[in-house]
Design a protein around this nucleic acid. Sequence first.
DNA 1: CTCATTATGTATCCAGTGGATACATTTGCG
DNA 2: CGCAAATGTATCCACTGGATACATAATGAG
Lengths: 201, 201
Amino acid sequence: MDPTAPKQSYHHGTLKTAALSAALAHLAQGGEDLPSLRDLAGELGVSHRALYRHFADKEGLLREIVAIGFSRLAALMAEHADKGAAGAMEAFLDFAFEQPGLYRLMLSLRSTNLLAEPIPGPQVRAVINLAMQAFDQGIGQSDEAIRNQVFSAWGLVHGLYELWRSGVLRAASPNLAKDFIRARLLDSGLVAGVTSHQAMT
Amino acid sequence: MDPTAPKQSYHHGTLKTAALSAALAHLAQGGEDLPSLRDLAGELGVSHRALYRHFADKEGLLREIVAIGFSRLAALMAEHADKGAAGAMEAFLDFAFEQPGLYRLMLSLRSTNLLAEPIPGPQVRAVINLAMQAFDQGIGQSDEAIRNQVFSAWGLVHGLYELWRSGVLRAASPNLAKDFIRARLLDSGLVAGVTSHQAMT
DNA sequence: CTCATTATGTATCCAGTGGATACATTTGCG
DNA sequence: CGCAAATGTATCCACTGGATACATAATGAG
């Protein structure tokens, strides 16, 4: 049963993974919302009810995608672990601007009541822990102090990002919005110095 | 035609205002989303299609509510205009924690793709202007510097609030979340000192 | 005052959505 | 082999926002 073969068989074989990939692909291509279960199933050549064998309901699918999103964010931050707080925050920014759909699902789904249950804890904790490591300057600050700094920085960046997306904060282009957010983070004094790995925009 | 009289008449008389009030009442009572057009119309004793005489579509209703929300926020800030930046930010916080449903509609509707069009500009600008006045310390800072401070403060507060609502930031109670946000704002140095008009929680 | 015009509601339809139940087909294991 | 569990399908349902056609009430011109 080669899953890559053009399968005409009654059983799909890898429907669950295929569904998650298809959904993530939609988000990666600029989709803000998930497609309907019917459309998603249609793409996979399967009846919409087939998905219910793998996810309890639509929220189940959502939750798995959110978990994957946080894992990816953690991975991205781990890549930049050497660059300290500035690197961590730049990773946040990159993620949010490159995967807006996914980022939105991760962080504004619960408050939008699309998710009844809390977002997946372990993956979120992983992200927070990575951030705390990045912000720890090894000079014996208390865990609480570090945690406060992490949330302040994340809050500032996330808040400005959302204000931009909501239309309250106007910017001529996404890149300029990103620059603005980076600048505010910089003069907040929360990070030693933000690596601006970009040419002039 | 007394609008307060128990109307059995074919014509409602003040349907538009009644619809907006009913929707706002739902939000005030803890509703996160608007009720369906049918439920809303049902409450008003009217067929769901009647609402379409007053709003182009559901988004039309939403947009008017968002506009009202920003007006109310502006009014609340104006009340505290004497207390400077700290007062303005406390007004933000109060509004967000007392009207979570409305606040969410105002600020995370657009990014949730429930609103295709930008949120109403004039009302938003009023809020920004009030905030800028509050942050202006009259020592000749540039408009841009003040604006940056306003957005930093608003971004920080809004971001932490959203992180809390999304479940990333855990707090035992809403009041503790509010305290945490106020504390982060305070040690950001963005406001001179936050009036903590509350007893210990 | 009358009557046509316009504003406002109603009745009924439609497509799309998430979800439920009952049935069909495989797969795989004793 | 043969039967049970896993996986899909067919078909139904309630509900939503929206469209069209028709009914009724308010209003202003003559």
